[in-house]
Structures are given as structure tokens and as C-alpha cells.
Amino acid sequence: MSLAKITSVKGRGVYVPGNDIDTDRIIPARFMKCVTFDGLGEFLFYDVRKQADGTDKAHPLNEARFKGASVLLSGANFGCGSSREHAPQAIQKYGFKAVIAEGFAEIFFGNCTTLGIPCLVARREDIARIADAVNARPDLEIELDLNAREIRFGGQTVKATIRETDRDALIHGRWDAIGELLEGRNAVLETAQKLPYLAA
């Protein structure tokens, strides 16, 4: 299986402020009653975006000027809570290609990598600068450079970090591990033989 080498993501941004934005907020559980991930994008942040009657609440994703944004910016501990892949799936299906935050919950971060969504960690003041720039000029292009570990926008450059194993997987096009895992078949059987509880 050949996967894209994700070395850079370019696109317009939108800032969804807040810390500890959990997976129930990203995709409320009632929308997980599905047997495929299709169509999850429209329920992204549903309860904070919509009133009970389905009309819009004030939310950055509802603002026309941020339509088409593909880089999501947020605060600390983004994606905490559930292991549900419905959360990164909803983010991807909505049209986001990357997330920048002060920090990520671990399972969410791993799930994103597996879908080829780079999650970059930046300092709070740098995220604030990017957010200011985006709010002033929504059509501004943000570039996430995974090789240089940098984020560039409007002539400015800030540092970003990402766990090395995940950066490596993204830039070398092996973020979906299945191919490599399947290649290890014989080694798996050898390891399994040493574990009595796996005997059929």
C-alpha cells in the first residue's frame, strides 16, 4: 500500500479556542450510531455549533469567512476523552488536513496520525499570533512544514513540535501501519509461540 508522504500541509486556518476540548464535544455520542464513518463531518462540534432546533449558534465554524479552512487551531489537551476514531474522522471529513494545538490527548493524537492528519504542538503565544493573523485575514495561507518543524504564515515563522515516531511515519508515507504490520507475520507467530495464553 503506498501512502502519500505528508511533509507539508498548506491551507487556510480557523481558530476554535478552549482547553480540554473533549471527544464528546468534537462529535457527540449520539452521532456515533452508524456502521460507517461516512457523513460524520456535518456533526463536527455539533452541540456547540447548533441550537436544539438545528439553527446555528455563534461558532467560528459557522462563520462564512472561515469556510474552506483546512487547518484547525485550538488550545491545550485537545481531543481528551474517548478513543473514538469518530472524532478525527469527523475532523477529516469536515475538510481539515491538520490540527495545531498547545497539546493533544494521546489516543486522539495517535488516531490522527493513523489517518494522515498531522497534529502539531505550538506554544500558546504562537497559536495566539496565528489566530490573530487568521482572524484578521481569513484567506491567509498557513503552511505546516514537518521537515523543518515550523509553521509559516503571513511572513512569520514559529516553531512546532510533533512526536518523532509520528513525524517519521507521516513524512515517509507509512502513517497507516497495516502494510508493515502484515509484513511481520512470521515474527508475530514466533512471539505468539512463547506466550502460553495464546494457544488455541
Partner: peptide, 20 residues
């Protein structure tokens, strides 16, 4: 470990997963 759906696929298909 709690895992996502793509990893469930990995475990189903290979009985393994990639983890740091």
C-alpha cells in the same frame, strides 16, 4: 490499551499494533 478503529483493524488483521 484503548484504541481507535483503524487500530482495531490492525489488531483484527495482524493481532498486533504499532505503539511507542
Amino acid at each position: 490499551f484503548g484504541i481507535g478503529t483503524t487500530q482495531i483493524r490492525d489488531v483484527l488483521a495482524t493481532q498486533t499494533m504499532a505503539l511507542g
